[in-house]
Design a protein around this nucleic acid. Structure first.
Lengths: 209, 209
DNA sequence: CTTATTTTTAACCACATGGTTAAACTATAT
DNA sequence: ATATAGTTTAACCATGTGGTTAAAAATAAG
């Protein structure tokens, strides 16, 4: 026992975070969490009364990590172009360090829709939306902003979420996955800005029929 | 018992497909599958020897459904622009009818990387890649094709995968989710083509530092 | 009808699961 | 030192788990 030993509760919480992130609520075993934390199983119930309570605590912390970090980006004093480049850089960098996080959140939210409420309260999209559609260089129609945002987030999230599959497919064409991700931090904003700059006015949202 | 009763094996397989797709391998219970199939639990083991075997059979069928259906699209005799529009229409339409499929496959592949081998064999990316970079109207540099493909797939998959979250966020801005998806089938190809047409040559993949 | 063969069932098994309990250990204050 | 409160442990419990077995029911073959 060294002096800088983490407090028991924190050790449990960290172990639970790892296990839940890896396996999800259903597949995670209390025994595994106890083992990884290096303590007795009964201690889990001493600090967090039930598996559900422990999970909720972990989920909230991970959700915070995932959303709060980027909520502020679009409020900065930058042009749209700068914002987009800045977002991809920060977001993809973060995802590379937390590759299991997005799939974990998406899976758990699908399993239990009530978790959505714990997430969306933390994001002020309306503010982000209005900030994005006011730019001197690039004019983005208001009703197009949701599609733009979803596109940006898609391009950032997906290659991380689909890593095992994408890695195998890229290998077939002789491309290294990590190199691909590095490239993407530059490609993605270039691509989005290219689409916006030239004829964003031609991009419609009406379905024609 | 009506005459058109499905054979027992098929009933089991269908029930297993539903349960596995909903809950994943770990959380799926053999009893639940038996109940949904309307038969005894022992019958599951009579037709498919173990949970693992049953799962593998289901997974293979779902993987087939997910990948084979679209492998041929890029081999058709169409311009790149037509191919892109055609893909988004078919792919997103398919995903709307099978909304749980992508997250199921991604989750299971993450849980057990060996499953990747069961998937990638079915797709000939190299062929798709070469087909995409030869077009008279739009010139796409060879090394850019993977990024283009990942972008297209991202834009199609993500809004379906993130449905519960996206639905809640859109609601805050007064947009209906289903309407958003309909719009997206038009927006997505417009966006991609807009980015490509104007300055695809300026899109680089080199990282500058 | 009688005999094999294939399907289906109820009862069972060993083991893992989340959770509990009561006792032991530790630290702190009096 | 000793009572008090907080922390940790081993042993235990009810229930659920994937899987087995042996016998019954249905079907096909002679």
């Amino acid at each position: 026992m060294t002096k800088e030993d983490k407090q028991t509760e924190q050790k449990i919480f960290d172990a639970a975070t790892e296990i839940f992130e890896e396996k999800g609520l259903d597949a995670a075993r209390m025994q595994d969490i106890a083992d990884r934390a290096g303590i007795n199983k009964a201690l889990l119930h001493y600090y967090f009364r039930s598996k559900e309570k422990l999970f909720t605590a972990v989920f909230d912390a991970l959700a915070e990590r995932m959303f709060m970090k980027f909520a502020g980006i679009f409020e900065e004093e930058m042009s749209v172009e700068e914002k987009i480049r800045y977002f991809f850089r920060k977001h993809m960098d973060f995802l590379q360090k937390n590759p299991r996080l997005p799939l974990f959140i998406l899976t758990e939210v699908n399993r239990n829709p009530k978790l959505v409420d714990r997430l969306i309260g933390k994001v002020n999209i309306i503010q982000i939306k209005s900030k994005l559609s006011k730019d001197k260089d690039i004019d983005i129609p208001e009703e197009l902003v949701p599609h733009l945002m979803v596109t940006i987030v898609s391009m950032s999230f997906f290659p991380i979420i689909a890593k095992p599959l994408l890695k195998a497919l890229l290998q077939k064409t002789g491309v290294d996955y990590n190199h691909f991700i590095k490239e993407r931090i530059q490609f993605a904003p270039d691509f989005v800005i290219s689409a916006l700059k030239n004829n964003s006015s031609e991009l419609k949202t009406q379905n024609n029929e």
